[in-house]
Structures are given as structure tokens and as C-alpha cells.
Design a protein around this nucleic acid. Structure first.
Length: 284
DNA sequence: TTCCAGGTCCCTA
DNA sequence: TAGGGACATGGA
């Protein structure tokens, strides 16, 4: 075993950072709630697949591998893990708002508010596509099949993992394969469009500068864009989908559907933190 | 069998 | 610019 540390400037609730958002249920993510260990594969720039275990210690994240890594590979994994857990994202401004409004006051107390994301934007784009116009169980199945059929197999910590497939691998599989084996239905073309754009401009699909161009991907509409904005740490829009509508209409409009603008402006007072306010209002 | 889900595309008027 | 049908899949 080889263990590395990521120091934390803002401590946070590890279990909550993983389970506040459904992403932990989507392959290749794996979470052991009893041991409080998070597992998944990471794909390095040299295309190597590494199985990693992450857990929390006071004031740092521990990152464990079963294989010895070069310094470069280790830094790459630490960088990706830091991104997943938003290690460098400040939550104090949001916590201050929670206390100002005297709402969601458990979040600052329990150091909650982090929503897990994937190591690469490409993976998150595909996963957002897998959440649209379907049920959550089916999203889980599609993610499982995608990694099983097209990811690289890797063993670690006593079990088998698969990596999340690269855009190149998805492109080479093609539409018929996605439809037949991954059961992505009409989304197959959307996933291929995302893969095509990621291959054409890889830098945009790893580290974000702007995300506006993701709107050009087929299948990425307003809900998906606001979800991707959340992924990169911009919370000034809400993801208006069936869950949002059900929650907001039931909680704030006595079950009677309001106008579109009233529906979307429920969390306006939260300014740059509308998404987080909705998310934790919804789950509290 | 029919409906619809953590939407989006595309065609019409 | 807004409205509405179509879209793959699979569970209820």
C-alpha cells in the first residue's frame, strides 16, 4: 500500500461530501459506508488505469494505491482527487449566507455543502446526459454498462473495477454498440457528440475555463447546463427538472403550478448560491 | 397496454 | 418566441 495526503484548509464532512449528490452511485464510483472508504479508478495522461481508495483523517484526505506510482502519476491523482472533493473551493461565503438568513443552518455546523464531482468534465457531461428523461435506476444501469463494456478493467482492494471510458473509446465503439450494449437509447448520439467534441478539444474537457460551449453539445439543455455549472462551482442557476418542480410547487406554491418565472425565482435571494440552497432545501 | 421519468430537439405558426 | 410531438428504454 502507498499512501499520500491532501491537506485541507477547510475541514468538511467526508460522508456527506460523497452522499449529498447521487454521483457516488454511478460507476466507477464505489462507496463503503461502514468503513467510510471511497474507491474508484483514475485514468492518467499516459492512459494507465489506477484503482484508488480515499478516506478522511483530521485535516487531510488520505489517498491509497496498491501500486507504486511515479511522482508525476501521484501528483496527477492527487490533483484529480482534490478536484472531486472540491478541496480548493471556499464554502465560507455560502455558510455566511446560511447564517444571515438563519436557514440551512445545519450546513455550516456540520461542514456540509460539497457535491461530489467526477475527475474529468467529460465524465460529468456524459453522466448528466444519462440523467435526462429517465429514472435514476436507469441512469445507474447505463453508467454501469458504459464502464463495464468500454472501460479498462483494473483490480484493486480485493475487487474488480472498470475505468470510465475515454472519449476515444466511446467513439470507436460507435452508436450501434452504445444502443445495443449500454442501452442509452436516443442518448447514444448525444454521448457521441460529446465524445467527438472532447477529442477535438481535449483541454476544455478536463479543466474548465468557461463552460458556455457545452451548450453546443446535443442533449445539453438548460437543466444540464445549470447542473454542469454546479459541477464547476458556479451555483447561480437552479436545475429546473421534474424533481425541482415537484419540490418547489409542493413546498412553496401549495401544490399549484405557478408561472415559469415564479418557479425559477424561488431561490433568487441566494444570489451566487441558488443551486446549493435548492439542493439542501430539497434534501434536508 | 399505456404512461412517463432528475429533458431536449426540432418543427410550426 | 412559444407550443407541442417525438425520442429509446424499462419499470409500474
Amino acid at each position: 500500500m502507498f499512501t499520500f495526503s491532501i491537506p485541507l484548509t477547510e475541514p468538511f464532512d467526508f460522508q456527506d461530501a460523497i452522499t449529498s449528490h447521487g454521483w457516488w452511485m454511478l460507476a466507477p464510483n464505489a462507496w463503503d459506508p461502514k468503513k467510510e472508504r471511497f474507491y474508484r479508478t483514475f485514468t492518467l495522461r499516459n492512459n494507465a488505469t489506477i484503482v484508488v481508495c480515499v478516506y478522511m483523517k483530521p485535516s487531510c484526505l488520505q489517498v491509497v494505491t496498491e501500486v507504486k506510482l511515479t511522482e508525476t502519476d501521484r501528483d496527477e491523482i492527487l490533483h484529480q482527487v482534490s478536484w472531486m472533493f472540491r478541496v480548493n473551493e471556499p464554502f465560507e461565503p455560502f455558510y455566511t449566507l446560511c447564517q444571515t438568513y438563519n436557514e440551512l443552518t445545519d450546513l455550516p455546523k456540520r461542514r456540509q455543502g460539497r457535491l461530489l464531482r467526477s475527475p474529468s468534465l467529460f465524465e460529468d457531461i456524459v453522466k448528466v446526459l444519462l440523467t435526462t428523461n429517465t429514472r435514476w435506476n436507469q441512469t445507474i444501469q447505463m453508467a454501469e454498462k458504459l464502464t463495464y463494456h468500454l472501460g479498462e478493467k483494473a483490480h484493486g482492494f480485493g475487487r474488480e473495477f472498470h475505468s470510465f471510458p475515454t472519449p476515444e473509446k466511446i467513439l470507436s465503439a460507435g452508436e450501434a454498440f452504445l444502443t445495443e450494449h449500454v442501452r442509452t437509447g436516443y442518448r447514444s448520439n448525444y454521448i457521441l457528440d460529446a465524445a467527438h467534441k472532447a477529442v477535438d478539444n481535449p483541454a476544455r474537457y478536463v479543466q474548465p475555463s468557461s463552460i458556455n460551449h457545452f451548450r453546443e453539445i446535443k442533449g445539453i439543455g438548460p437543466y444540464a447546463m445549470n447542473t454542469l455549472a454546479m459541477i464547476v462551482g458556479r451555483y447561480d442557476g437552479v436545475p429546473v427538472d421534474s424533481e425541482y418542480k415537484k419540490h418547489v410547487i409542493g413546498t412553496y406554491f401549495n401544490g399549484i403550478a405557478p408561472s415559469k418565472s415564479d418557479l425559477e425565482s424561488v431561490y433568487d435571494k441566494w444570489g451566487d448560491y441558488k443551486y446549493l440552497a435548492y439542493w439542501f432545501d430539497h434534501y434536508k
